[in-house]
Simulated assay, not measured.
Amino acid sequence: MKFNLKYKDIDESRELSSENYTIKDLLNDLELSSQSLVCKQNGELVIEETEIKNDDEIQLIQIIYGG
């Protein structure tokens, strides 16, 4: 089973490494923090506990801080 990941310059198909694979698992695998990202699943905002399903599109959007 696969899903599509979009993050910065990355746009790739990835294998689901396990059942019940969540956004949090993905962030851990990529060594990214949810504190600096917004996560979308098929265009909808989601939380870390959301499961990634076959053929989902996961988009990670970097939050930019500034003043």
Rank of each mutant, 00 (worst) to 15 (best):
M1T: 10
M1D: 04
K2S: 10
N4K: 13
K6T: 07
K6G: 01
Y7L: 10
K8I: 12
I10F: 05
D11Y: 03
D11R: 08
E12I: 11
S13C: 07
R14N: 07
E15L: 09
L16M: 14
L16K: 11
L16T: 08
S17W: 09
S17Q: 15
S18C: 09
Y21D: 01
T22C: 08
T22E: 02
I23G: 00
I23W: 03
D25T: 07
D25N: 15
L26F: 02
L26W: 00
L26M: 07
L27E: 05
L27K: 11
N28V: 10
D29H: 05
L30D: 07
E31G: 00
E31H: 13
E31L: 09
L32T: 07
S33T: 06
S33N: 10
S33D: 06
S34H: 07
Q35H: 04
S36V: 08
L37Q: 05
V38M: 14
V38D: 02
V38H: 07
K40I: 10
K40M: 15
Q41N: 09
L45M: 12
E49V: 03
E49R: 05
E49M: 02
T50P: 04
T50Y: 08
E51T: 12
E51Y: 09
I52D: 00
K53N: 15
N54T: 12
N54I: 10
D55C: 02
E57H: 09
I58Q: 04
Q59W: 02
Q62I: 02
Q62V: 06
I64L: 15
I64C: 09
G67M: 10
